[in-house]
Design a protein around this nucleic acid. Structure first.
Length: 622
RNA sequence: GCCCCGGUGGCUCAGCCCGGUAGAGCGGCAGCCUCGUAAGCUGUUGGCCGCGGGUUCAAAUCCCGCCCGGGGCUCCA
């Protein structure tokens, strides 16, 4: 028996004329059914009542998932070329109907033996369309084979979850003592069972709006974000920092297109593994898709390059703004997961596993350093290392050495067989205020794509070889870094500390508040002096009370606030309100400049993204 | 994609259950206050009650569809 099962918004059908002698009696009336699972059914030779029962039971298990309780059994011969005799078929169909009613389904049936016209609207979700093949008991053996094939695939994907300790010992997750390692526990739980509960809005969503960093864009697709001047500054600074670090590491920065031709031979095969997750667009007679990583562009570019083992490892980098993934509707949240995001993506092409392992360590350290510089310390994230069983057997010490560099126990995921294109992968994961985890940096050793893209290098013997490819995002998506920083700030607030951004990312580093308009001129002088040292300084020249302006500066997370009045004109000691401590420190201007310069040393610099005078600024939110 | 909750001036929200003239606080604007470190006072502006359809004499309110947001699933090479 074959059943084409369609979850439908509605179906309209109308019997037109009898086709065969055994056709049932029916009225030639149009019928409409809504919110229904339609079962186009072909009864094949050898099917019997047991098959009918089994078919309905299988369907029912599925209906529970969909939370639908209404079916239409629609005889449909065209599904099979091995049909049984019509009279037997009708019997089996009736048996299906009886079974369905028996187990409490709201059951409808289209008449058997008629030529019918129909219109159907099928829902868009992945489970909406399914083909079932139900075989009679005799054929059970054959079916077993098929199942075992499926089970094998399933088996391949089965993951073992463990905790790898620094001494190299691997413990089952239940046996590990998570005392003092609550984040690792939350991360492990998130990865393994994904159980979580939360009623509140993610804190970073409220913050990104209130601080005028970013917001949803109702005029776009979900997961496409609008960035206000302050947010653009923060993002752009992080982008610059990551890019600088990766270039320092030795990668060559390139730029590749954001859209690709579906028909390109190297891409077609790769894409077949990731169906229906891209944005697709048409241009003239071509079908294009938007990139979901910088891999395509870089692979195609390196495919055309000529290089030998002497130039390896060969490192290529791109800040992929944007990468697009049409994530499922329910998964797109704030800045945690977007449909359009900025992905720093660095590939390294290595001669062999030995070289790859060496490079892997270099990049592991690089990623830790980059996160640290962004403002996420090792306490803010947890590591996961994922590999195949085979790889572990041969590389125990290597994997343990990664954990040692990380300095703490890590979560490991072990695959019995390789089913991705990589044999080893690690990722750093931020655990947020809702106990959800989001991956930041990651690196992988890819053993497949060099062949797929026909990327070759020339070895010592002058022979062409496929390299190993390492895929690394040194920071993870830039937007996700902003998410992590905001969530981290919120955590600190919960712990009684003032929430803030790292000084080098604070849109306003120093705010000067003149007591009254009589003191504005002096404020301007101080601001100019700070500005020439490349600090971001602004002046709150609005005619509001002092208390109110101080309050607003604090709510904007301004790290240093200086109130300027008559005393400051007469003396060069400035009352600097330090957000970190909440105290007012008497400082000379030069002392403040030195302090800030020391803290932001080595970080990218950018000017204030807004008018210097607060009276000249629009309000983007609130 | 599925299930649950929500969408009301720029922002946060009340009103909806039980249909009958749209409300508050914040913000904006104007005026006063010229101020010593987290909200000064007064006045005023501002709303196709997310969009479309239906029921009704009458819809922010009831019903249906869609869009957007949040949560839970699923998914996450």
């Amino acid at each position: 028996m074959r059943i084409l099962q369609l979850h439908s918004n509605f179906i309209n059908y109308k019997p037109i004329q009898k086709e065969i002698a055994v056709a049932e009696e029916a009225e030639k009336q149009e019928r409409r059914l809504e919110e229904i699972v339609v079962l186009f059914t072909a009864v094949e030779e050898g099917d019997n009542e047991a098959v009918a029962k089994k078919a309905i039971d299988e369907v029912q298990a599925f209906l529970e998932k969909l939370k639908v309780n209404r079916i239409l059994i629609y005889p449909y011969a065209h599904l099979s070329s091995n049909l049984t005799k019509p009279a037997d078929a009708l019997k089996v169909i009736k048996a299906m109907e009886a079974r369905a009613k028996e187990i409490g389904l709201e059951t409808y049936r289209a008449p058997f033996g008629w030529n019918k016209q129909f219109t159907i609207a099928i829902k868009g979700h992945p489970l909406a369309e399914q083909l079932r093949v139900i075989l009679p008991a005799e054929a059970e053996v054959k079916k077993e084979e098929k199942v075992s094939e499926a089970v094998k695939a399933e088996e391949k994907m089965k993951s073992l979850w463990r905790i790898l300790q620094l001494d190299g010992e691997i413990l089952p997750v239940e046996k590990f003592d998570f005392k003092g390692r609550e984040n690792l526990e939350k991360f492990a739980r998130y990865e393994i069972s994904k159980v979580r509960a939360s009623e509140q809005m993610p804190p970073h969503v409220t913050l990104m709006k209130r601080l005028e960093i970013a917001d949803y864009e109702p005029g776009s697709d979900p997961g496409n974000i609008r960035w206000y001047p302050k947010g653009r500054l923060i993002k752009s600074l992080i982008e610059q920092l990551v890019t600088n670090k990766v270039i320092e590491y030795g990668a060559m920065e390139v730029e590749t297109p954001i859209m690709y031709d579906f028909g390109h031979p190297s891409l077609a095969d790769y894409l077949n593994r990731f169906p229906a997750r891209q944005y697709i667009l048409k241009s003239e007679n071509k079908e294009l898709f938007l990139r979901f990583a910088a891999c395509f562009g870089q692979f195609l570019l390196v495919h055309d390059a000529q290089f030998s083992y002497k130039q390896m490892p060969l490192k290529v980098y791109e800040l992929a703004r944007y990468s697009f993934r049409r994530e499922q509707r329910g998964e797109v949240v704030g800045l945690r997961r977007l449909r359009a995001f900025t992905m720093p993506d660095c590939h390294a092409f290595c001669t062999d596993l030995e070289q790859a392992k060496k490079e892997f360590i270099v990049r592991f350290k690089l990623c830790m350093q980059i996160l640290e510089e962004i403002g996420l310390s090792k306490d803010d994230y947890e590591a996961a290392i994922r590999f195949t069983k085979d790889f572990y057997r041969e590389n125990k010490r290597f994997i343990t050495s990664l954990a040692k560099i990380f300095g703490r126990s890590v979560l490991v995921e072990i695959w019995k067989k390789r089913f991705f294109y990589f044999i080893l992968k690690w990722d750093f994961n931020f655990v947020d205020n809702q106990d959800k985890a989001a991956a930041l940096s990651t690196d992988q050793i890819d053993v497949e794509n060099a062949k797929r893209y026909d990327i070759v290098y020339v070895d010592e013997k002058g022979e062409k070889q496929h390299p190993l490819i390492m895929h690394c995002s040194p920071s993870g998506a830039i937007e996700r870094c902003v998410y992590a920083l905001l969530e981290k700030a919120y955590k600190e607030q919960k712990n009684g500390k003032p929430p803030m951004l790292p000084l080098w990312l604070s849109p306003t580093q120093v705010r000067i508040i003149p007591m009254s308009d009589k003191h504005l001129e002096h404020a301007e002088k101080l601001a100019d002096a700070l500005e020439t040292q490349h600090l971001r300084v602004d002046i709150d020249d609005r005619t509001l009370t002092l208390r109110k302006r101080v309050r607003e500066a604090e709510m904007e997370w301004v790290p240093y606030i200086i109130v300027v009045g008559q005393k400051e004109i007469e003396s060069d000691a400035l009352p600097v309100r330090d957000r970190k401590t909440g105290k007012i420190r008497k400082m000379k201007l030069q002392e403040l400049i030195s302090e800030i310069e020391e803290i932001v040393k080595g970080k990218p610099l950018k000017p204030l993204p807004l008018p210097k005078h607060l009276s000249r600024r629009p309000q983007f939110y609130g």
